[in-house]
Design a protein around this nucleic acid. Structure first.
Length: 871
RNA sequence: GGGAGCUUAGCUCAGUUGGGAGAGCAACUGCCCUACAAGCAGUGGGUCACAGGUUCGAGCCCUGUAGCUCCCACCA
């Protein structure tokens, strides 16, 4: 093995080998329990960012863990066509070449889109591989693959036949830039500084006027009423009469409607059913005409009279000036309001009445809510269930048609001759009603999320009853960010229930966002994004992976920083070198199962620590506490194994006793192998590379069994006793530092103890690690001679003669400090034990432990007092 | 308007069934003791936002307050 950790030496090689050997492949095996994870397919709009890196790392860790535990683990990868997002990108690209959608036509555009897909989907796959993702590439799916299209049509037709999909004229969000409808979830709201324009609408006789206030005066041409509250005494008498729409001079009625809030503004609302969701409702209640005054591109249409053709903002400006001149505009006040923006191009969306396709949500939502209430699906952390409920309970019908070209085209055909509307799973060329061949398919495509919603089963062969679908569905855990609970998670749940009659997954593991060092969202506009590939090439995939998992709690955002990755890289280096040390040290030794040796107390201690690591990691993984699992392994590997056990075992390996050396070597190998297995789900490359170099191992670590907790290896008593030995070593080290004694200076130790056997059994270790030359067992302080520093421990009192370095006064002060600490402890324990409530109500074990502590501290106090006296 | 999260060491954050406050980084001291200076040993540093409450016992549970962040709805 190379002396320094250099991940680029082996990461690609190992990944290739895993892939070639089919380690990622999930093939139905009825002797195994399936474990299914569906990758949230990344958009083909670009490349992977840090958020993906975290998302994929979490899925990979969970999948590898389960695979090693013996499950038939399937992690199914894919990419998403991302209808609107991709189309926006391609239009941008074409614009640079002086082309437009119209100029290349639908066919030409789709050709470009597929070329784009080939390029970017491939790139994303390469990136996922660099990360170490253990997904089954043979199942790689694109959301516009034939199988997905088939599923989409199946579902569309089923819902259509059940009348759960309908076409209707309704208020939708319209993006004038993308020129398409958007669903409610695709609109981002942001506060903006705007104005309230106060406009007077006079009665027909000109004697009275209603003053309305609006933030969008240009919609005025679509006004078909003015509403006042029916119980508003100010205007009640005008209900049923007409007012005149300024500029156009058209009479419109005054209606009484609760929508008008007497407290707000003037209490009069202009009603524009075609351009406002609330007004649309009012319009329905009063049978008002719906007058649309804007074109698809955000310009005004012919109903805007002389303003026709103007952009909506141009018109606003011109119109308000004209109104002012006419005397109708009586006030302009600044107003901060929430404005909806397209989530892809950020243009201000317009609520517009439009004929679109919708999914009727009533009926689909309830079972989806119940599935979570009934714990068929669990959100981790649980609080996200509330967000889900809230959305589901208030969900409106889902607008699924998009006036785009890139996507699943709506499988509905219209007959030009008889007007029939034919919804079909297969392409239709002849009218089923009149036999005419004069058919045309609906121009629109479906919302991207319509196909994403089917992902958990479309990928497995739905609508066919495939063996895979039967075996791998439902999935086990869905890992994703909280930002797409509405877009995706919710829709997968109701779709799974509706079409498969089963929930699509049992757990939803939600993670937060990866932010930059300053806590800002990583974004293109800020230019603060960090490319995972660059980090990988600099530090290695394992370091990046570990940095994205360590210290992260489910659902919480995390910050990316180079410093964090660097510290993880250092950990990798530590693992690397410990592996190298073990492999070098055991080369000439006879490695046997640890059960064949009489283990030392240090051996038992590290094996006990290993057992608790196995237990803790497994528990944490089962609860998706990846951060805790990583931390557990970090501590075990670095502190317990490297800093203590390896150091303890060095003298044994070099000693005369060959059996002892074999034993130490065997324990080293045993612990290292297990630790690597425990670490493998998080850092697959380095663990495998080291594992292969351990004598006696075969093949890759990734197909080995995950360690299981073994209670016979807990060695509770031995491990605890051994900590007494460690205490002695720590105490001597500390004493040296306190007295500015160079670590290289070997000291003599005089120990008063009742644990002579334990200490002499570990004599070599103590001498080596504490930097001592001898241990003398004595009866009292006097035997240690003058100028000895005393360390009072529960395993005994250690005297360290330091000659001229000792300052009696300082030593006294130090011991008094120690005494004070011990006294505090005694007071604390005493107080607890004198508390009748504690004695009566606390668990017995706790009370006993507290008593034992008290006795220990009392003992220490006596020893320290005696020592002080002797000075 | 409704809801959620956060507030713990100088910084970034863990702390999940309530039982003596932790890590990484930074700081300070001393070390090349041949696995690792991407390292080793040691040290300092916290009224766990604030105020109440429940409890024998609260960083953790309940109520309220403040600051920050986010989500949903929406005021025409």
């Amino acid at each position: 093995m190379e002396k320094t950790y250099n991940p680029s030496d082996f990461e690609d090689r190992l990944y290739k080998e895993w892939e070639e050997k089919g380690c990622f492949k999930a093939v139905r095996d009825d002797d195994k329990v399936p474990f299914t994870v569906m990758m949230p397919p990344p958009n083909i709009t670009g490349q992977l960012h840090m958020g993906h890196a975290m998302d994929e790392t979490m899925q990979d860790a969970v999948t590898r863990f389960k695979r090693m535990q013996g499950y038939c683990a399937l992690w199914l990868p894919g990419t998403d066509h991302a209808s609107i997002a991709t189309e926006v990108k391609i239009v941008e690209q074409m614009k640079k070449e002086g082309l437009s959608k119209e100029s290349v036509g639908r066919e030409g555009f789709l050709k470009r889109a597929w070329e784009w897909k080939e390029k970017y989907a491939g790139r994303i796959v390469e990136q996922l591989k660099k990360l170490g993702s253990s997904c089954d590439w043979s199942r790689l799916t694109f959301t516009m693959d034939d199988k997905c299209s088939k599923a989409v049509r199946e579902v569309f037709v089923n819902l259509y036949n059940k009348k759960l999909i309908y076409r209707g004229n309704r208020i939708i969000n319209w993006c004038p830039e993308c020129k398409t409808a958007l669903s409610d979830a695709e609109v981002d709201y942001a506060e903006e500084n705007g104005f309230f324009w106060h406009i007077k609408y006079y009665t027909e006789d000109g004697k009275e006027a209603l003053e309305v206030a609006t933030t969008r005066p240009e919609t005025m041409f679509g006004d078909t009423a003015v509403a006042v509250n029916p119980s508003d005494k100010r205007y009640k008498h005008l209900i049923g009469k007409n007012v005149v729409l300024p500029v156009v001079n058209k009479p419109i009625p005054v209606v009484g409607d609760e929508h008008a809030d007497m407290e707000f503004g003037t209490g009069c609302v202009k009603i524009t059913p075609a351009h406002d969701p609330n007004d649309f409702e009012v319009g329905l209640r009063h049978n008002l005409p719906v007058v649309r005054v804007m074109n698809d591109d955000g310009t005004m249409n012919e109903l805007a009279g002389k303003y026709a053709g103007m952009d909506r903002y141009e018109c606003r400006k011109a119109l308000t000036e004209d109104l002012k001149a006419l005397g109708n505009l009586v006030g302009t006040e600044p107003h901060v309001h929430n404005v909806g923006h397209c989530y892809r191009c950020s243009a201000t969306v317009e609520p517009i009445v439009s004929r679109q396709w919708f999914v009727k949500m009533e009926g689909l939502a309830r079972p989806a809510i119940n599935a979570v209430i009934d714990k068929k699906i669990t959100f981790v952390p649980e609080r996200f269930a509330k967000i889900y409920y809230n959305w589901m309970e208030n969900v409106k019908d889902w607008c699924i048609s998009r006036q785009l070209w890139w996507g699943h085209r709506i499988p509905v055909w219209y007959c030009a001759d008889c007007g029939a509307e034919i919804c079909s799973k297969t392409d239709v060329s002849e009218c089923t009603r009149c036999g005419s061949r004069n058919l045309s398919q609906d121009e629109d495509v479906l919302d991207t999320w319509f196909s994403s919603a089917l992902w958990p089963f479309s990928t497995l062969g739905f609508p066919d009853d495939t063996s895979d679908l039967e075996y791998f569905y439902p999935g086990d855990v869905l890992v994703t960010g909280y930002d797409i609970i509405f877009f995706w998670v919710a829709r997968m749940i109701f779709s799974g229930l509706e079409h498969m009659r089963k929930v699509p997954f049992r757990d939803v593991l939600i993670h937060g966002l990866v932010r930059d060092e300053k806590g800002r969202k990583m974004s293109k506009s800020l230019g603060n994004g960090v490319d995972p590939l660059e980090v990988i090439s600099k530090y290695g995939a394992d370091s990046l992976r570990f940095s994205l998992l360590q210290g992260v709690a489910p659902g919480n955002d995390t910050r990316y920083s180079d410093a964090k990755v660097e510290s993880c890289r250092n950990f990798m280096n530590k693992i690397w070198n410990s592996g190298r040390f073990v492999i070098m040290s055991v080369a000439d030794r006879n490695i046997k199962p640890v059960s064949e040796f009489r283990l030392s107390s240090a051996d038992k201690w590290i094996i006990a620590r290993l057992q608790s690591a196995i237990r803790d990691v497994t528990l944490a993984m089962n609860k998706f506490e990846l951060g805790i699992a990583c931390q557990t392994m970090y501590d075990f590997m670095w502190s317990d194994f490297c800093d203590w056990y390896i150091e303890l075992v060095k003298p044994v390996l070099k000693g005369e006793d060959a059996v002892a050396a074999d034993r130490a070597a065997s324990v080293l190998v045993f612990v290292l192998e297990n630790a690597l297995k425990l670490l493998h789900p998080f850092i697959p490359f380095i663990t495998d590379e080291i594992y292969r170099n351990i004598p006696g191992t075969e093949g890759t670590i990734m197909t080995k069994e995950f360690p299981r907790y073994n209670s016979r290896h807990a060695y509770k008593k031995d491990a605890q006793a051994f900590e007494g030995v460690m205490d002695i070593i720590k105490a001597v080290r500390a004493a040296k530092t306190e007295l500015n004694c160079p670590p290289s200076r070997k000291v003599s130790l005089y120990i008063v103890t009742e644990n002579k056997r334990l200490i002499s059994a570990n004599c070599d270790s103590i001498l080596k690690l504490a930097g001592a030359k001898e241990i003398n067992y004595v009866q009292s302080a006097a035997d240690a001679g003058e100028n000895a520093v005393a360390k009072v421990l529960s395993s005994g009192t250690v005297y360290i003669p330091m000659g001229e370095l000792v300052d009696i006064e300082k030593e006294k002060a130090r011991l008094e400090g120690e005494l004070e600490k011990v006294m505090d402890e005694i007071r604390r324990a005493d107080g607890k034990l004198n508390n009748q409530g504690f004695i009566a109500k606390a668990p017995k074990k706790l009370v006993d432990d507290e008593r034992a502590k008290l006795n220990k501290y009392i003992e220490l106090r006596e020893k320290i007092l005696a020592q002080l006296k002797s000075l």
